[in-house]
C-alpha cells in the first residue's frame, strides 16, 4: 500500500497539470444536413444545423454517380446509395449528421464523425447485416473516443483505483461503476429520465471533488464512504456519469429504431476505452512496485489536493456556464 502512494502522486500530478484544458472536452461541433427526395434520385439538401466552420466550407463528398451542388443532389436511377464522407473533419467540425428523407420508406440518419469519417448509405432494403456492421463500427469507435477524451470520467476512475487499491475490490468497484453508467445511459437514451447537460456536467465535476476529499480522508487515517462501500459510491456516481455519456449520443440525433443497437455499441466502446485505461494504470502500478520507485513522503498530500483543485476548477467553470445561460 505504502509503496504505491508515490506512483499515484506522480500519476495524479501529471493528470492534474493537463486536465484543466479539458474543461470543454465534451463541447461537440456538430452539423446536421438534411436531404429530402423530391423525385426519384433527386434530392434537395439543407443544413438544418449549420456547423461552426460554416456550411460553405464543408467538403462533402458523395457517391461518384451522384452530382452535388447544394442545395441540389442528383443521383439518377441508381439513387442515393454508396459512401458519403467529409474531407475536412477536424477541430472545427467533429461530427455531422446526414438525414435522408426518401419518397418511400422511413427517413434514415447517418453520422459522419472523426471516429468514423465515411458512412455507407444503404438502400430501402435496410436494415440489413451491413446496417448493423456499420452501426457497430461507428458507435464502438465513438464510445472509445468519448471515454478517452472524457478527462473527467478518467480522473474519477483513477480516483477509485487510488482509494480501492487493486485486487477483487477494484474489479467489483469498476464493475459497479460500469453497471451504474450503463443503466443511466440506457434510461436517458430512451427518454425515461432527462437531466439538462450543463448542470449535469457540474455534478460530474463535483463527483470528482468527492473522490478527492475521500483520498484526503484516507491519508488522515479516516475510513470514508468510498473506502467502506466502494461499489455503492461507484454505482451512484456511475449513474451520474452515464447520463453524461448519453448526452453525447443525444447530440447525434439517432433514429429511434436504431437507438438500441447504437446504444449497445456505444457502451461497448466506452467499456473498451475504460478497460484499456484501467489496465494501463495497473501495469504502471506493477512497474513502480518492480522498480521500487517512490517519491518523498512530503509530497503525499499533494495529489489529493491537485485532484480536488482540478475538479473544483471544472465545477466553478461549469457552474458559471450554467448561471450565464
Amino acid at each position: 500500500m505504502i509503496d504505491l502512494r508515490y506512483l499515484r502522486i506522480a500519476l495524479l500530478l501529471v493528470t492534474a497539470l493537463i486536465l484543466p484544458r479539458a474543461l470543454f472536452a465534451h463541447e461537440a461541433t456538430l452539423g446536421v444536413l438534411e436531404f429530402r427526395e423530391v423525385r426519384p434520385g433527386a434530392f434537395i439538401g439543407l443544413w438544418t444545423m449549420e456547423p461552426t466552420v460554416g456550411a460553405d466550407r464543408v467538403d462533402l463528398k458523395v457517391p461518384p454517380h451522384c452530382f452535388l451542388r447544394l442545395p441540389e443532389l442528383n443521383c439518377g436511377e441508381k439513387g442515393l446509395v454508396g459512401q458519403i464522407t467529409i474531407g475536412n473533419l477536424g477541430a472545427d467540425m467533429s461530427a455531422a449528421l446526414i438525414k435522408i428523407i426518401p419518397l418511400k420508406g422511413e427517413p434514415r440518419s447517418y453520422t459522419i464523425s472523426t471516429a468514423n469519417p465515411v458512412v455507407t448509405v444503404l438502400g430501402t432494403d435496410a436494415p440489413t447485416i451491413d446496417t448493423w456492421l456499420e452501426l457497430a463500427k461507428t458507435y464502438i469507435n465513438y464510445g472509445i473516443d468519448h471515454i478517452l477524451l472524457g478527462a473527467d470520467h478518467l480522473l474519477f476512475v483513477l480516483g477509485l483505483i487510488w482509494i480501492v487499491n487493486g485486487g477483487w475490490r477494484l474489479v467489483k468497484t469498476i464493475t459497479a461503476f460500469t453497471v451504474g453508467h450503463s443503466a443511466s445511459l440506457a434510461a436517458t437514451a430512451f427518454g425515461l429520465i432527462g437531466v439538462p447537460e450543463r448542470p449535469l456536467n457540474a455534478c460530474i465535476a463535483l463527483s470528482i471533488v468527492f473522490v478527492g476529499v475521500e483520498i484526503v480522508k484516507q491519508q488522515r487515517g479516516e475510513i470514508g464512504w468510498t473506502a467502506r462501500y466502494p461499489w455503492a459510491v461507484a454505482v451512484t456516481f456511475g449513474l451520474v456519469h452515464g447520463i453524461g455519456f448519453a448526452s453525447a449520443l443525444a447530440g447525434l440525433g439517432l433514429e429511434r429504431r436504431l437507438l438500441p443497437p447504437a446504444l449497445l455499441f456505444f457502451n461497448v466502446g466506452v467499456e473498451i476505452g475504460q478497460l484499456a485505461f484501467v489496465l494501463l494504470v495497473l501495469a504502471l502500478i506493477w512497474a513502480h512496485r518492480r522498480l521500487d520507485a517512490v517519491l518523498p513522503r512530503w509530497g503525499e498530500a499533494l495529489p489529493a489536493y491537485a485532484i480536488g483543485s482540478v475538479a473544483m476548477f471544472w465545477f466553478i467553470g461549469r457552474l458559471l456556464i450554467v448561471l450565464s445561460t
Binding site: 506522480a10 501529471v14 497539470l17 493537463i18 494501463l280 501495469a283 504502471l284 506493477w286 512497474a287 513502480h288 518492480r290 522498480l291 520507485a293
Partner: peptide, 16 residues
C-alpha cells in the same frame, strides 16, 4: 503532456 506521459509510461514499463 502527451509526449511526457508516453515517455514516462514507456520507460517505466520497459525497465520493469
Amino acid at each position: 503532456g502527451g509526449l511526457a506521459c508516453a515517455g514516462y509510461a514507456a520507460i517505466t514499463l520497459i525497465m520493469a
